[in-house]
């Protein structure tokens, strides 16, 4: 496939799928006559998007801030955890199984404790987002660290490279594509984390709060509009990260392209 066709298809195909789904949705509502209190039509959602754009944007600002900060916290802790697990068998044995198990804990049950410890406001929300994002970042970074060719480390030893130099010159760069993949997965999870966090910590703003409020007010069109903004933000974040990945790690892309030739 030529690259221009490829690029067009990149935008066109998901757009067509979306249009098709919207068409089916609208048709279903027209035919079945289901109440708009249960399921609003795409038409009504679009109208809510336009009418409430001010409110939506203001609350998006708040949620976006939470998400970006939450991801950054998760990256810092996740990266350090991955390196420690990679370096020390002791840490791996002690931490890794618990880390996996902790992912099965529904965050809802943590909300009261978090609020108790951290009070209401931004902090418990950041913790929830960071918790959601932490795991994918650890796993993919660790994967990157573990793909390092042991022969390469042997070679570094014949150059008298210290453990730190081996890490800095070989292991760390090898782990970067994994870390970026982890952040991309985390970005998508973080949106759900933000909604949970805002609802559980009783936040007074943000898209999660808006979802709660519109639900309580029986405004399904506005509720769906909020979800649209959330999804749109997740896609935007993902695309931005993909662009950043191409910029920062061109070599990883070159290798992929050569392999797929």
């Amino acid at each position: 496939m030529s690259s221009r066709l490829h690029r067009t298809a990149f935008w066109l195909l998901p757009a067509l799928t979306l249009l098709l789904l919207l068409g089916i949705w609208q048709l279903y509502i027209d035919v079945s006559g289901v109440s708009s209190l249960v399921l609003p039509s795409p038409h009504e959602v679009a109208r809510a998007l336009v009418n409430d754009r001010g409110t939506l944007l203001r609350n998006l600002g708040r949620t976006a801030l939470e998400i970006v900060c939450g991801i950054l916290i998760a990256v810092a802790f996740g990266f350090v955890a991955a390196v420690l697990i990679h370096w020390s068998t002791l840490v791996r044995r002690a931490l890794y199984p618990l880390l996996v198990a902790s992912q099965a804990v529904p965050l809802v049950i943590l909300a009261p404790v978090l609020v108790l410890w951290l009070n209401f406001g931004l902090r418990p929300i950041l913790v929830v987002i960071a918790l959601v994002c932490f795991f994918p970042i650890v796993v993919t970074t660790l994967g990157g660290l573990e793909t390092v060719d042991p022969e390469l480390l042997k070679l570094m030893r014949t150059f008298d490279a210290s453990r730190w130099q081996q890490f800095r010159r070989v292991e760390l760069p090898s782990a970067m594509p994994g870390l970026l993949t982890g952040i991309k997965i985390a970005a998508v999870f973080s949106v759900i984390g933000a909604v949970f966090g805002e609802q559980d910590a009783g936040s007074g703003s943000g898209l999660g709060y808006l979802l709660n409020a519109t639900f309580a007010n029986y405004e399904p069109a506005e509720e769906f509009a909020t979800v649209c903004v959330l999804s749109g933000f997740a896609i935007l974040l993902f695309v931005l990260l993909t662009v950043a990945e191409r910029r920062m790690l061109p070599w990883a892309y070159q290798m992929k392209e050569i392999q797929s030739r």
Partner: peptide, 14 residues
């Protein structure tokens, strides 16, 4: 002291 040239080139891709 000896330096090794490995069988595969083992260059760093980045």
């Amino acid at each position: 002291p000896a330096a090794l040239m490995p069988q595969r080139d083992l260059l760093l891709p980045w």
